[in-house]
Design a binder for these strands. Structure first.
Length: 191
DNA sequence: TGCCGGATCCTG
DNA sequence: AGGATCCGGCAA
């Protein structure tokens, strides 16, 4: 069995909006012992630098956001509302806080629970802050892979759950596979 | 040390 | 529509 083609660090070390779009259609894979838990990414959000009021890095470097300020191609996993874990891939360059949140997957290998929503997909893939925050995405535990599938049709909307961010909340930095049935929120109906 | 808000989810 | 739930960040 050939080693799976993980996305290289150079994939992540680029403009966050571009990475967020290109992550659609890639597969997120978590190795848990002998089994793999995986899903096809159908929804992402970009969090872009210290000026973005919705980005955790906006408030500066803290213990919670340390990974986000580090090298690209690492997992930034945090806990919200006491119970939900959220998975991000760190982007751009060290010192610049930016990441792509994965908000929904289409389940494939080993996954039976719901994967629509950032907290649900982490539960379904057994991604936790304790075990996964800071993991190198070019390593053997947690990674993204390109299976050579055609790029999906992409739609952009404002990000979810960041109304506190003022004008930044309106920016269309949520990206979805426009043809997916596995999104965390429905798209506005097409004309 | 204490308080407050949150990149969500579930129930009713 | 509203409550659960608890950690991190900041003020004191």
């Amino acid at each position: 069995m050939p080693r799976r083609a993980r996305l290289p660090r150079s994939f992540y070390a680029r403009e966050t909006l571009l990475v967020a779009r290109e992550m659609l259609g890639k597969h997120l894979v978590h190795r848990r012992g002998h089994e793999l838990l995986a899903g096809r990414i159908v929804e992402t959000e970009a969090y872009v630098g210290p000026d973005d009021r919705a980005c955790h890095g906006h408030r500066g470097l803290t213990e919670r956001t340390r990974v986000m300020f580090g090298e690209p191609g690492h997992a930034y996993v945090f806990i919200v509302y006491g119970r939900q874990h959220c998975f991000n891939a760190v982007t751009e360059s060290a010192g610049y806080p930016s990441a792509v949140l994965v908000r929904a997957l289409e389940p494939d290998e080993g996954v039976h629970a719901r994967t629509d929503g950032p907290g649900r997909l982490c539960a379904a893939l057994d991604i936790t802050k304790q075990a996964c925050n800071g993991l190198d995405l070019t390593g053997d535990a947690l990674w993204l892979e390109d299976r050579g599938e055609p790029a999906p049709r992409i739609a952009a909307t404002p990000r979810i759950g960041v109304d506190y961010a003022g004008e930044w909340a309106a920016r269309p930095w949520r990206f979805v596979d426009a043809d997916s049935h596995w999104l965390s929120k429905k798209l506005p109906r097409e004309k």
